[in-house]
């Protein structure tokens, strides 16, 4: 909420800052809200007070909000589906079981279309990705100020509730997929994987360095494009929501205009979040399928 003491820039920046729990090194000077300076005597794990502290924490920090929402939504997904799986009847299914079965069949069909190997991991992973990413994206449709405001009442000052607008979350999944790609490439193709990297596209030993460079770039581009595509889409979408929310404090006419904009963007975003979850799932399946195919 852009209050009197907050400029629009501050408002936006505030919305783009995670709740970070991380390590500050010994000797670090903390600027406390009352203006005084506290010097840390040893390495301290603590919640960051501002963006500067976040930057100084470096790698040893955790986005508590992203991870909590992400894991929370994942657990919700597993709880819901496990409940259905346990009660699954072969008779007439209930409403929830029907929906879950529809999803499972949809994912199963997609996997069967794109993945031609035999691997019991792929279809469950595709289902997990689709539903989990969809749920995480769905948080984008919650009004941007609602949860941060509620939590600020409880004394939590930063909160980003859409995990997929955090590059760590999307890249975390993409890197896991990448590790699986490498694992199955080596497992299925063995030495053929090395040949694929070195003797393709120019099948002559002179071109080995060129081939290697091109193939490695192509290989590495996959997890990056996978993770960054989702991140970019969701980050941009979230940004637009924040900008629209910023309009609300710019006068009555702007607020009404912003209301219509928010509605339109939210409706459009329903499409985007579903599509992005689907794309992430399909690309994962395709990449794993390529890892299983021996040329």
């Amino acid at each position: 909420m852009a209050g009197a003491t907050q400029t629009t820039t501050e408002y936006i920046q505030h919305h783009l800052t995670n709740l970070v729990f991380g390590k500050l090194p010994a000797g670090y000077q903390r600027h406390l809200p009352d203006g005084s300076v506290e010097v840390l005597e040893r390495d301290t794990w603590t919640l960051a007070h501002d963006a500067a502290e976040v930057a100084d924490m470096g790698f040893w920090a955790i986005h508590v909000d992203s991870l909590a929402w992400s894991v929370g939504l994942g657990v919700f997904f597993l709880w819901l589906f496990r409940r259905v799986a346990k009660r699954a009847t072969t008779g007439v299914p209930g409403l929830l079981q029907n929906a879950v079965e529809w999803l499972v069949e949809f994912v199963d069909g997609t996997v069967k279309d794109s993945f031609h190997g035999r691997n019991p991991l792929v279809a469950p992973m595709a289902l997990t990705i689709f539903v989990w990413v969809f749920l995480m994206n769905l948080m984008d449709l919650v009004p941007v100020d609602l949860v941060p405001w509620l939590l600020s009442l409880a004394g939590v000052h930063y909160q980003k509730i859409v995990p997929t607008t955090d590059v760590n979350i999307t890249m975390g999944m993409a890197v896991t997929v990448f590790i699986l790609m490498i694992y199955y490439s080596v497992k299925v193709k063995g030495f053929g994987f090395v040949k694929e990297l070195t003797l393709h596209p120019f099948n002559h030993w002179v071109f080995i360095p060129v081939n290697l460079f091109m193939e490695v770039v192509a290989l590495l581009a996959r997890p990056f494009s996978l993770g960054l595509r989702l991140f970019g889409n969701m980050y941009a979408g979230e940004m637009i929501f924040i900008l629209i929310a910023a309009l609300y404090s710019a006068g009555f006419l702007f607020a009404v205009f912003g209301g219509f904009l928010q509605l339109a963007w939210a409706i459009f975003h329903i499409l985007v979040i579903t599509l992005q979850a689907f794309i992430f799932m399909v690309l994962t399946v395709v990449y794993l399928s390529m890892a299983h195919e021996d040329h």
Binding site: V54, M57, G58, I62, H63, V167, N168, M171
Partner: peptide
């Protein structure tokens, strides 16, 4: 957008 431990956690 800084990469940190969150990635490992995820």
């Amino acid at each position: 957008m800084n990469i940190n431990l969150t990635l490992i956690g995820q």
